[in-house]
């Protein structure tokens, strides 16, 4: 590590020489560590790679270089305080005036200047508005899709692999995640089928929605839409893992704890002649998180 450009300190006394020696040793050592790290990294890589070793050797290669540079600067580079004057950042009045004059050159030649400026501005504005339109291509108009799911009257319920669900498949205290038949990838239609061990208190108008005490709710939390996954059968509560909103299954999935403000929408279901579970229509409201015109 004898670089001809590195300024050598003048050995004024023994202490100074010792210091320089130490600096030299430290710098050399750091760079040696760096070289070792780099070589070892190459070897590790060729032998098939190993994340931990790669990290360690990369650390040595970079760190040795870094320490070496800092030690070098500490021991062998001129130190001391430098002072620099600050200058005013603002331009002076004269400079501003000179600039203005330059900028407004040619203005007096223009007649009807205000009209030209106005038309020019209008043209630029019109172009700006025109450029907004391509943004419209980024997504469809937020219409019905936000408020409805593929559930219709007569659509059967299936599991996520497409198997039809019979009413008997849901045991007491059991939960099954269901989808409308043919739409197992519909993110807004995931449904929880639950058969609590106590009678569900049906909301007015929903008395016939729970055949055999089987109740179907949207699986999407009304807070910010996480899947409500945890059913505590003993207390009939559904728990959202994201922010701990808790819904009462017996009472129309009313939120009783946490940040969710709305009940989970309920799906009207019935059991058809062959014993399959069938939807009688769409959910009682839009599923998932709220938006401003949800109720319109």
């Amino acid at each position: 590590m004898s670089d001809p450009t590195a300024p050598d300190p003048i050995p004024e006394d023994a202490a100074r020489t010792a210091l320089a020696k130490r600096g030299e040793r430290l710098t050399t050592l750091s760079f040696a560590v760096s070289i070792f790290g780099a070589l070892a990294l190459a070897v590790v890589y060729w032998r098939g790679g190993q994340p931990q070793l790669e990290g360690i050797f990369l650390c040595l290669a970079l760190g040795g270089l870094g320490v070496g540079m800092i030690v070098w600067a500490r021991y062998f580079m001129p130190h001391g305080t430098d002072v620099e004057a600050r200058h005013q950042i603002e331009s002076t009045e004269e400079e501003i005036d000179a600039f203005r004059e330059e900028f407004e050159r040619g203005e007096h030649i223009l007649t009807r200047r205000s009209l030209l400026v106005r038309m020019g501005t209008a043209a630029v504005a019109a172009l700006g508005v025109a450029l907004i339109f391509p943004i419209r291509s980024l997504g469809p108009r937020p219409g019905k899709g936000f408020k409805s799911t593929p559930y219709r009257k007569g659509i059967r319920l299936v599991t996520d692999d497409g198997t039809l669900i019979k009413a008997d498949d849901v045991s007491v205290d059991g939960v099954i995640t269901a989808f409308p038949e043919g739409h197992t990838d519909a993110a807004d239609a995931s449904t929880l089928l639950i058969r609590p061990n106590e009678p569900v208190q049906a909301r007015p108008g929903r008395e016939s929605w729970t055949p055999g005490n089987l109740v179907a709710y949207s699986k999407l939390c009304t807070h910010v839409g996480c899947p409500v996954g945890l059913y505590q059968a003993g207390v009939h509560l559904l728990l959202c893992p994201c922010h701990q909103s808790t819904f009462d299954v017996l009472d129309g999935a009313r939120p009783i704890f946490g940040p969710a403000a709305r009940s989970l929408p309920q799906l009207p279901i019935e059991v058809d002649g062959e014993g399959y579970i069938v939807a009688r229509g769409d959910f009682s409201g839009p599923t998932g998180p709220g938006f401003w015109d949800r109720d319109r």
């Binding site: 040595l60 760190g63 870094g66 540079m69 130190h79 001391g80 430098d82 002072v83 600050r86």
Partner: peptide
Amino acid sequence: ENVVGEAVWPSFAFKSLGLMMLVAAV
């Protein structure tokens, strides 16, 4: 009216580059 410190070259620049290497190393 003044700035008192160290000139960029050479000591400061080397230390700063060294710091970059150390950040990358960590």
